[in-house]
Design a binder for these strands. Structure first.
Lengths: 226, 226
DNA sequence: TTAATTTGTAATATTTCTGTAACATTAAAA
DNA sequence: TTTTAATGTTACAGAAATATTACAAATTAA
């Protein structure tokens, strides 16, 4: 079962892009272009998550947040705020007023989608898929287990996240930088070659008993899951 | 296995109270604030029991009841009706239209919970077990007893709640924060490392005589019941 | 009240994980 | 073939996370 997402955002082009893509992913989406109306509609709609623009013509994001958190029925509604580049201060205020995550405009839909799922996974796991599979590889996000050909495999936390990352987009090649950005906690600085070592560790763990190597090295580009 | 309960009730505050508490008891709960939509969602959700408000803005409880009883898939769905004080006549009508029990508002959650269990025990005994089990572990919520391999085990109150929590969702990994939120009384502030100590105490108690450890440590994530 | 049990924390021990550097190997370019 | 660049492999020290222990404060039972 996929969840319901409500969008409050005044740039129609963004709403359109996001709404369309989320619906393609199976979410039920409703939206409003302004704050006051949005609040009312939202409460009727009862979403599992709210995407909230921080700079609205009528109401500020903070006001909306406060209103929502005050309403006992929506106290726990996960909120992701959309903020324009550089409004660092807003991020702080946002996180203080109980926002769950934020995405800086301009953003790629993939980035937004990943954050939505991460937030939902925490707050409302049943609305989001928990098993990732590829060929005979299976990763369970809830139980934090990995299997290859039905045999359980032990992975360290970083290898787990790395595999999780590859599994969300099999076959796609990622550069070391992209991997770093996504798999490592923000503002951590690690040598890009470090990834090679983790790739090796991951390979060693998942390529059991003569099973073929599921990780492909793409010289000068990066790595991918086959 | 705990059952699924659907709620059709237009007072959001009641829905929230009931839903939250039922979920805490391990039921899977879904709800709707109005009759027509509720009927549709209910049929998708396939609950083991329905809590039905008798006075809805759009459809009357009777109509919903009739609709349900006419549908061969839900002919036997147990229904508990929620009725406002003094509407004696409704009770009669309700029982006539095949309601299994009724609860008069305002009600305490405990009262409702007891009735739900009573009705389920009659109609679908396997969903109400007051006993939670996992492998050779057994916990009786009523008698507050715990057994491993049929030998009784003494647990302190906190260890009991902790084990109870794990047993409602075996295999699932919980972070220390999640454990804290659920197992500890609200607004108590305890160090997150404290959980490690309680985990140890729990382990020490339930892993008797060389029996395997039933609690799994998942580095960087938390703990789970195997 | 006293005794017994339970609880949270801090201190210490242990285990596991991580990042890096150094060296080896492989593939591409010259 | 030789050279060069990129990736593979290994070992290891420091870091991080968890396990264990002991103890004092708080709670409950006797």
């Amino acid at each position: 079962m996929k969840g319901k997402i409500f969008i409050i955002e005044d740039e129609a082009s963004i709403v359109q892009l996001v709404q369309h893509n989320l619906e393609k992913e199976g979410f039920v989406v409703s939206s409003s272009l302004n704050g006051n109306e949005g609040l009312k509609e939202l409460k009727k709609f009862e979403p599992n998550l709210l995407l909230l623009d921080w700079m609205l013509p009528d109401l500020s994001g903070i006001d909306i947040c406060k209103n929502i958190r005050r309403d006992s029925n929506f106290k726990n509604l996960p909120i992701i705020m959309l903020t324009a580049k550089g409004e660092e201060e807003d991020k702080v205020k946002g996180l203080e007023s109980g926002v769950d995550d934020y995405v800086t405009k301009p953003f790629s839909f993939n980035e937004l989608s990943a954050r939505i799922k991460a937030v939902l996974r925490r707050s409302d796991p049943k609305v989001v898929a928990n098993e990732l599979t590829f060929e005979d590889l299976k990763l369970d996000r809830i139980e934090k287990r990995v299997f290859r050909a039905d045999k359980e495999i032990q992975l360290g936390p970083t290898e787990f996240r790395l595999l999780e990352f590859f599994l969300t987009n099999p076959k796609r090649v990622y550069s070391r930088d992209q991997i770093l950005e996504t798999v490592w906690p923000n503002n951590v600085n690690v040598e890009s070659r470090t990834i090679d070592v983790h790739i090796r560790r991951l390979r060693q763990s998942i390529n059991i008993e003569g099973k073929k190597d599921l990780i492909r090295t793409v010289r000068a580009s990066g790595y991918s899951l086959i």
